[in-house]
Design a protein around this nucleic acid. Structure first.
Lengths: 314, 314
DNA sequence: TTGACTCTGCATGAATCCATGCAGCATTGG
DNA sequence: CCAATGCTGCATGGATTCATGCAGAGTCAA
């Protein structure tokens, strides 16, 4: 068991503190595109470390903390010791040497200085701005989700193949369904908006199925009406493939959907904001267009007619 | 059950879990920030959670883990419990429910699935992601605009004072108007949605004015129908104060609006995305609530009735 | 060479974290 | 209406992590 790794230790022994650490952030974190916060934190860490006289082992620990500044603030002293190739007590002594009460205190400090998640950099945002930023965060999640376009592509293919295409959205989600249907109708020959529940819903689903529908798109946003679950259940029994855009993968409609695409809603205001679901709907529409060969032609024809009628001001 | 987690075999206990883990590639990265890499894994996390039946508390934990996917893999069960607002044993039970041998095993799994270690990426965004980031930029502009809430406050006061309150949105903007009207009706006694133009529009404006309307809210998005300009002109001549949410301060409707609030639309996809206008609409609604003393009571009454009717699943 | 000094890992008590039995509460079905 | 079931938080024993005393090794100066 490697009790001592003096060989590895020696390589750093000669390096000055400032030099040895100063080279780190550029090499380790510079690649990360927008991680300015962490880099700034690294600079602060370096200041913290440089102002103390550190032993070779401690320098090694510091080096490790800077290099792994992303996750180091969450590791235990044992884990840091393993990563740095030192003993666990050395990590504790390192923390004490820097003036902390112990390793947990150092870790707390690292979490505050190098916030992985938020930027509590003096944010006097008002209520509205906070809501907007919360939605930005939701969109970030959506963007990350779209890194893999396969689910969207599958959904687009399924929806494009359905003639007619029923689009369901009840209550709060009605507006989303309507927005989708408005644009979808420009490229799809038969979009049927289902924004009312009740007994008529089954009739219209039956009608769509008789007309040849094979899939249904559902927007499901909180608060989730019980009716939506019933509607989807009916649609599936009628033989439709259900594609759902929901606020969460754990939404009540998940169980009665064949393909669920999550997009969080914003809850920072009195009423929910559905930016991400709307955007996801448009993305879905784009994907549908890829499976509708006549889409481009339809759009151009619409433009021509609109121009002829003087429909728009531009 | 393994006494120590260093066995390395503990986290493979669950069959389905192991499968989900095996599909982890090291390349799937999306967002620019360091946490983006971790978020890219949130899709895989969702898959993991989806395949299990979860209790409400467990869903909260899952939500928390997804939302904080950057640092959650390094938190203790106590910390996760605090973030999720549940008890610590619930976190342990959550891990067991997913097929792990305990919380440490789940944490190990999360660390492997969502490596914070940001790979050397020049991750080129795909088309969808570019559109999402463009909308994020729009929201940033909106947030900057909202630094001064005075215009929104003025608009909210004007709209709240109008009984009834006509809400206009034609064609593409119809969905926005509808979404606003749906929520507004919960706090305002008489919201009238005008989402159709034609000759009926003037009739309905006249009706609203006779009923006491003093203001009108208009959503104006591209492409701007000529009809909207005509409608607003008519509404102003009828004595209504026109508040407009438009995609630009230079929109064609600017000339016939008393108060114009700009919110850009996204044009990165085949069809426009109106995240910022939607958000601005909700902000406007929030501001309206501040001028409607009965708003809170109305909402609570609605909640009570909805609960009595079993309208929603939650 | 020798002595003093410093540094480091090992071992062990203290503190914290994790897992499980138990009781209270809500929901469902009869 | 009641019983049964499942879910959740509280309390507690076991396991892990942290902090500190101790001894060996290296360094430097006399």
């Amino acid at each position: 068991m490697g009790t001592t790794e003096d060989g590895g230790d020696a390589e750093e022994a000669g390096a000055g503190v400032g030099a040895g650490l100063g080279a780190v952030p550029g090499a380790g974190l510079g690649a990360g595109a927008g991680e300015g916060a962490a880099e700034g934190a690294s600079a602060r860490l370096l200041k913290l470390f440089e102002s103390h006289r550190l032993t070779p082992t401690q320098r090694r620990i510091a080096h490790c903390l800077v290099r792994r500044s992303a996750d180091a603030p969450f590791l235990s002293s044992v884990e840091v010791a393993e990563l740095a190739g030192v003993s666990q007590p050395s990590v504790t002594r390192f923390a004490v040497a820097l003036g902390f009460d112990g390793y947990p205190a150092l870790r707390r400090h690292l979490r505050e200085v190098a916030p992985v998640r938020p930027g509590p950099e003096a944010a006097p945002y008002n209520e509205y701005q906070q809501a907007v930023h919360a939605e930005i965060e939701n969109l970030r999640h959506l963007a990350a989700l779209l890194a893999d376009p396969a689910p969207v592509a599958r959904a687009g293919a399924v929806l494009a193949a359905s003639r007619p295409l029923p689009v369901l959205g009840l209550r709060a989600a009605g507006a989303q369904a309507r927005g989708f249907a408005y644009f979808a109708a420009k490229v799809h020959p038969d979009v049927r908006l289902l924004d009312e529940g009740g007994t008529m819903f089954a009739d219209r689903v039956d009608g769509a199925v008789r007309a040849g529908a094979s899939a249904l798109l559902c927007f499901a946003l909180p608060r989730h009406p019980r009716e939506v679950v019933e509607a989807l259940t009916y649609a599936r029994h009628a033989g439709l493939t259900v594609v759902t855009v929901a606020d969460s993968a754990f939404a009540p409609v998940a169980a009665c959907s064949d393909l669920l695409l999550p997009a969080a809603v914003g809850t920072g205001l009195a009423f929910d904001t559905a930016c991400a679901p709307m955007l996801l709907g448009r993305v879905l529409l784009e994907s549908m267009c890829d499976h509708l060969p006549d889409a481009q032609a339809s759009l151009e024809e619409f433009d021509a007619r609109a121009a002829a009628r003087g429909l728009f001001t531009d």
